[in-house]
Design a protein around this nucleic acid. Structure first.
Lengths: 207, 207
DNA sequence: CTATGTGAATTTATTCACAGCA
DNA sequence: TGCTGTGAATAAATTCACATAG
């Protein structure tokens, strides 16, 4: 293994590999070849091998990859091997679903705080997390929370991001359909389902 | 303008341009240059021009693009200029949010049917749409519904997809964290928020 | 003999820089 | 002059094909 700049596309695929491997692991499978994994994920075996090869020699020639070992390695690469505490801002319909979603845990995310501006919601619990006043966002640093999840209406997204950044978060998951501006040291990922849906008709044959 | 194969990446960006243009339009802006739009979307002006140029000459040299005209053109390219009826299967937490989400309308999507397997839910209304028994999925073709949205638990995702395909849908938006197999004539887009979240720590500096 | 790891070849996408038009 | 439209140059990503190790 030599030095290579790691393609962003490789990083984008690693969570997909991880999800597949976790599934295989649940099923009790101990070894997997690049070909098997590619079959399962409808991917390309050569690409899988190349993606892994950027980080080291994870497999055994003639045999394949040990599922558990590979899971551990990918978690390490993606820095999912340490628990990341996250705070969610905006406990509306979407926010409540995200709060209740159990699927993040396996990737090392723990939503430990929730904030809202609506005094009627404050104090109530969703999924065993007490909703706090947004003014409490400033306590995040003390509470070792380094990820913010924005599920507020679009008009409030930027000010929410500002508050989160001020409170020291290093990463933001933004569900508002807009761009938000943050210092370069903070990473933002924006998720807008409509952006995906909007490309579906283009690829739909005979429409 | 000459013939060019259109890059998938261009298609991926068009909805983002559209979202930005719709916002500018709401604000009353009538003209926009590639530079302005790039500033607004944190994109590259040259890339914006190149993306548009694959489809025709939409702009005016020395002036820029007419916002409304550009919106119309992008809608046409993405085939969002005709209304697509969609059916949602699985009215749980996530399904209810998707059903209630108003943001799809502007992209030409109209969720007109909802299905669930739980007899306690059947007949109830969410966002003014009556929940039907999943056995009714077979009526989709008659009802001119060509998009299916899967918000059922993972274990039921494939059989739901099978039912939707059998009922004639041409596109599927899958929110279950797994791959589903469909005939080549049907396009599937899988959305798994955890896949995005899982790449956040890698890009978070100093973590 | 099997399946990995990886340079090299190819394909795809982005950026550049400027000709051409309002 | 200002901004688009676009070939050409560059960069990035994917695929290929095979040497290499178990």
């Amino acid at each position: 293994m030599r030095y290579h700049k790691i393609p962003d596309e490789t990083i984008r695929r690693l969570p997909i590999y991880l999800r597949g491997l976790l599934f295989l692991s649940e099923e009790g499978q101990q070894n997997v070849s690049s070909h098997d994994l590619a079959d399962f994920l409808r991917a390309n075996p050569g690409q899988i091998r190349k993606d892994f090869s950027y980080f080291g020699d994870f497999g055994t020639r003639g045999v394949g990859y040990k599922v558990e070992h590979l899971i551990k390695q990918i978690r390490k690469i993606l820095k999912l091997d340490v628990v990341h505490k996250a705070a969610l801002v905006g406990v509306g319909n979407l926010g409540s679903v995200v709060l209740a979603y159990q699927g993040f845990k396996v990737y090392g995310f723990d939503i430990t705080a929730a904030f809202d501006i609506d005094s009627k919601k404050i104090g109530k619990k969703v999924n065993n997390i007490a909703i706090e006043n947004v003014s409490n966002i400033q306590t995040l640093k003390k509470r070792k929370i380094d990820i913010g999840i924005i599920t507020v209406p679009r008009a409030a997204a930027q000010e929410t991001a500002d508050a989160l950044v001020k409170a020291g978060v290093k990463g933001v998951l933004n569900f508002s359909p807009c761009y938000i501006t943050v210092p370069k040291k903070v990473k933002v990922l924006t998720i807008d389902i409509a952006m995906d849906l909007a490309r579906l008709p283009y690829y739909m044959p005979s429409c």
